[in-house]
């Protein structure tokens, strides 16, 4: 079964708790990340309103906190998300969540290696 992270980026405030929680849990040094906040904005649209989305993106280091989830715990980033906008689950469950609300994104990360 495939597992993923669902993120409601409409309400992601950009607090970066996910980034730092991940670094603490996995001992990742500065300059590297297991999940990283991408920051798009603010820039003004023609209607005078601003676009600003902050989207945490899992990196190639993300293993979805296998150690924790196998014990029934949330991945460390999900557990600490201040806005509570992250969900962990099977792709099947999360796909249903995607239908319930727009402006969400589903990631299905898995550590990958080339070469």
């Amino acid at each position: 079964m495939a597992y993923g992270l669902l993120i409601d980026y409409e309400f992601c405030t950009g607090c970066q708790s996910c980034e730092v929680a991940c670094k603490e849990e996995h001992g990742i040094p500065v300059g590297q990340w297991g999940i990283r906040l991408l920051d798009d904005g603010p820039w003004k649209c023609s209607d005078g309103k601003y676009n600003w989305n902050k989207i945490p993106v899992p990196t190639r280091l993300c293993d979805l906190c296998e150690d924790r989830t196998s014990k029934g715990k949330q991945p460390f980033c999900v557990h600490h998300c201040l806005a509570g906008v992250m969900q962990y689950g099977t792709v099947e469950e999360l796909a249903k969540e995607l239908e319930l609300k727009p402006n969400q994104v589903l990631f299905v990360p898995q550590p990958y290696h080339y070469g």
Partner: peptide, 16 residues
């Protein structure tokens, strides 16, 4: 997660 207001959530200052 037992905390009735923060529910397990933490900011980076407590995480570190």
């Amino acid at each position: 997660e037992n905390h009735p207001i923060t529910n397990g959530r933490l900011c980076v200052r407590c995480l570190t």
